[in-house]
C-alpha cells in the first residue's frame, strides 16, 4: 500500500490547526453493555483509547463492532457501564451529546452524504450551522479538505454524480471540516467497488500519519498492519482478543481469532 505523505502542516490557515484533545485518554469505555430488546449485543466492553492511537476493530458480522463504535457518538445508546469521550461522559444530556458529536467525526459504510446538497454544501453545512462559522470561511475550510482528499474539482457537483470512492472521500472531508479530535470509521470500504478501495484507504493512511485518533471497523488487514497500534477482534458482542498488529496476525491466541483469520487470509 502506498503511503502518500501529504504535507499538511505547512501553510495552514489558523482555523485549520489541528485541535488537541483535552485529556490523554480519548475514549474510555468501562463495562459497557447494550441490548436490542432481549438480544445482548454488547457484553462488558472495556476499551481505553489513548490520544493519537489508531485502533482497528474486526470480527464476524453481527459481532457488535459497528454497534460499539456507534455508541461512542451516541448513534446507539448503551444501557450499562460508562463511556467517557475526551473527559466528557455520555449521558442523556443532549447538550453533552451534541458537544461530543461536534468533536467526533464519523465515516459510514454507505457514505450518508446529503444528496440534495452539492459537495461543497455537504462540507460547509455543519461548520456554518453547528460552529456558526461565516460562510466564506467555511468554504475555505471545505476547499482545503477537498483538495486534501484530492477532489476539489468536484465541489459543485452533487453526490449522485460521483463514484463510490469519491463519495467516501467527500464523506471524510465533510467530517474533517468540523476539525474532529477523534474519527470513527464504520466499514468505510465495504460498499466500494474493488478499484475504489485504495483511494479511500490512502486518505485514511495519511490521516493516521498526522496523528489523528482513529477507531476503524474494517476488514482491510493490510491497512491494519500498516497503521494500527492495536487490533481488536470481537465475537458475539465481546472483545475476544486485542494485540499489536504484528502479534495479532502472527500469533493469534484465541481459537475464534485463529478461525476468523484463517477464513479471511487465504
Amino acid at each position: 500500500m502506498s503511503t502518500t505523505t501529504m504535507s499538511m502542516t505547512a501553510d495552514k490557515p489558523a482555523h485549520l490547526k489541528p485541535v488537541a484533545l483535552k485529556t490523554e485518554i480519548a475514549v474510555d469505555m468501562i463495562g459497557v453493555h447494550k441490548w436490542y430488546g432481549e438480544f445482548h449485543v454488547l457484553k462488558d466492553i472495556n476499551l481505553h483509547v489513548k490520544r493519537g492511537e489508531r485502533i482497528v476493530i474486526c470480527g464476524p458480522s453481527g459481532s457488535g463492532k459497528s454497534t460499539m463504535i456507534r455508541c461512542i457518538n451516541r448513534l446507539e445508546e448503551h444501557q450499562q457501564g460508562r463511556i467517557v469521550v475526551d473527559g466528557v461522559e455520555l449521558t442523556n444530556d443532549l447538550k453533552r451529546i451534541d458537544e461530543i458529536r461536534r468533536d467526533v467525526g464519523m465515516v459510514f459504510q454507505h457514505f450518508n452524504l446529503f444528496p440534495h446538497l452539492t459537495i461543497l454544501e455537504n462540507c460547509t453545512l455543519a461548520p456554518i450551522w453547528v460552529k456558526k462559522m461565516p460562510k466564506k470561511e467555511a468554504e475555505e475550510v471545505a476547499m482545503h479538505y477537498l483538495k486534501r482528499v484530492k477532489i476539489p474539482e468536484q465541489a459543485h457537483k452533487y453526490p449522485g454524480q460521483l463514484s463510490g470512492g469519491q463519495q467516501q472521500r467527500v464523506a471524510i472531508a465533510r467530517s474533517l471540516c468540523m476539525s474532529p479530535k477523534i474519527m470513527l470509521f464504520d466499514e468505510p470500504t465495504s460498499a466500494l467497488d474493488p478499484e475504489m478501495v485504495k483511494e479511500v484507504l490512502d486518505t485514511m493512511v495519511s490521516l493516521a500519519q498526522e496523528g489523528m485518533t482513529m477507531l476503524c471497523v474494517t476488514h482491510e488487514m493490510g491497512f491494519a498492519k500498516q497503521v494500527a497500534n492495536r487490533v481488536i477482534f470481537m465475537d458475539a458482542g465481546q472483545i475476544v482478543e486485542m494485540n499489536t498488529p504484528s502479534e495479532f496476525f502472527a500469533h493469534p491466541q484465541h481459537e475464534r481469532t485463529k478461525l476468523f483469520l484463517s477464513q479471511i487470509l487465504h
Binding site: L75, L94, D98, R101, G105, V130
Partner: peptide, 21 residues
C-alpha cells in the same frame, strides 16, 4: 436512516437536521 445518522454525527440538533437535511 443514514441521512439522520449523517446529520447527527456532524452535531446538528433535531430542528437543524429536520430543516436542512
Amino acid at each position: 436512516k443514514g441521512q439522520y445518522e449523517g446529520a447527527m454525527s456532524l452535531g446538528l440538533g433535531y430542528w437543524q437536521m429536520m430543516r436542512l437535511i
